[in-house]
Design a protein around this nucleic acid. Structure first.
Lengths: 214, 214
DNA sequence: CGGTTTCGATACGGCACTGTATCCAGTACA
DNA sequence: TGTACTGGATACAGTGCCGTATCGAAACCG
C-alpha cells in the first residue's frame, strides 16, 4: 500500500482522519448501507465535497476503515505484549484465571460502538472477498499475539494447557467476541460489559488450563 | 399474538410465505438495508402491491422473518432430541467426539445463505431491542436443547463433564457459530463447511469432556 | 350463477441520496 | 506580498425507491 504520488499534505491527512473517525461512529450506529455519505460528512463537520475529494466511494472508504481498525486492534495487542515483557509482569500476574484475564482485557476495553463496528465489518467481510482477506489477516495476527501472551504466561507460571497455545488463543478470541456481543445485546453498560466478558473468558481459561485450579 | 380478526385466507398465507422465503434469500445475499422491497417482490414473483398488502414495512417483515427463522431452528433441535430419544440412539452413539458431533450437526446442515441470514439478524438485533429479545430467546432455547442432548449422551455413556451441561452447550453453540462464519468467509462449500465446523466442535467437545478420550 | 369481497397489479407523487461540475478561499512559495 | 495551487463548499441533474391510491380480476358464498 504505497503513497499515491505526492505528499498527501498535512491538511488533507487531517480531514481524512476526521472523516474516518466520523464514519466509524456512523457505520457502527446505523450500519454501512443505512449510513449516507452526507451523514458521515455532517458528523465530521464537512460537506460531501470534502468526502469525494478524499474517497472514491463509501465502499472504498469502508475498506480503508476496516484496515485501519484491524491494524489498530493488532497494534494494541502487540503493545500489550511488549509492555508485559518489558516489565516482566508475567511473574506477578495473579494466579486466579479471572483476575488474569481481566488484566489482559482491560487494555482493549472496547465499548458498544466498537463491538458494533467490528460486527459490521465482519458481516460485510462475509460478502466481500477484499474485506474477508483483511478480516482473516487481522484475526490471524490477533490469534498469534494472544497465543504469544498465553505461552509467556504459561512459561512464567509453569502452567501447561490441554490444547496448543494457538488453539487456546482461538478459543479465547472466540469467547471474547461472543461475550461482547451478548453484553451489548443485553444492553449492558461498559462496566457490565467488561465484567461479563472477563467472567466468560475466565471460564474458558479454566477449561483450557491443564491442572484444575486450587 | 392473536389473529387479526378474520381468517387469513389460504391464498394470502401462501403469498406471505413466498414473500418471506424470497426475503430470506435477498436479505442474506445483500443485507436488509441494501435489499429493496422491489427486489424481494421480484424474487417472489409479485409486485410491491402484494408486499404492502401483506406487510407494513420492510422492517416489520424482517422482524417476522427473524421470529420464523428462530422458531424453525429451535424446532429442528427439538425434533432431533425427540428422534434420538425415540430410537434410543444415545446408546449407539459413537465414542469418538468428532463422529458424535458430526451426527448431531448433520441435521442442522446450514448453508452459506443460512449463515449470512443469521448474521444479518444478529447485527440488527444489536441495534433493535425488539429483535434482540427474539434473538436471545432463541439462543436460550437452543442452549437448553443442546444441553439436553449433552446430558442425555452423558447419562447414556457414563461421561462426566468439566463444566455444567448448560455452559457446555453455550460453548458448543459459540464454537458452532464461529466456525460457520470462518467457513463461509474462507469460501468453503457446503461439504467443507460441515467438515470444518464439526472438527472445531469436536475439539471443544474433547475439551469439555472430563476424561481424556481413550 | 351473480353479487360481493379479497387480493394483487398498476399508476403516481415525492423524497433522499448520489456523483459531478463549478466556484471560492486559504495556504505555500518565490 | 503577489501568484499558483490545493482543498473544500455549493449547485445541479439524475436515479431509485418508497408508500399510497386506484383498478381489475379471481375466489367465495348464497
Amino acid at each position: 500500500m504505497g503513497d499515491e504520488s505526492t505528499t498527501p499534505s498535512r491538511r488533507r491527512e487531517i480531514t481524512r482522519n476526521r472523516l474516518l473517525d466520523a464514519a466509524a461512529q456512523v457505520f457502527a450506529e446505523v450500519g454501512l448501507d443505512a449510513a449516507s455519505v452526507e451523514t458521515v460528512c455532517e458528523r465530521a463537520g464537512f460537506t460531501r465535497g470534502a468526502f469525494y475529494s478524499n474517497f472514491a466511494s463509501k465502499e472504498e472508504m469502508f475498506l480503508e476503515l476496516a484496515g485501519r481498525v484491524a491494524a489498530e486492534r493488532v497494534g494494541v495487542v502487540k503493545a500489550r505484549i511488549a509492555e508485559l515483557e518489558r516489565q516482566g509482569a508475567f511473574q506477578t500476574v495473579p494466579t486466579d484465571a479471572l483476575a488474569m484475564v481481566e488484566q489482559i482485557i482491560d487494555i482493549s476495553n472496547e465499548d458498544r460502538l466498537g463491538v458494533l463496528l467490528m460486527n459490521e465489518i465482519r458481516i460485510h467481510a462475509l460478502r466481500s472477498p477484499a474485506l474477508a482477506a483483511a478480516y482473516v489477516a487481522q484475526e490471524v495476527q490477533m490469534r498469534a499475539g494472544v497465543a504469544q501472551i498465553i505461552e509467556d504466561i504459561a512459561a512464567a507460571k509453569g502452567i501447561t494447557f490441554r490444547v496448543p497455545a494457538d488453539e487456546a488463543a482461538a478459543l479465547m478470541l472466540m469467547a471474547w467476541e461472543s461475550a461482547s456481543v451478548h453484553a451489548v445485546m443485553s444492553g449492558a453498560d461498559k462496566a457490565q460489559m467488561t465484567s461479563l466478558t472477563s467472567e466468560r473468558l475466565a471460564a474458558v481459561a479454566r477449561l483450557i488450563i491443564d491442572s484444575p485450579q486450587s
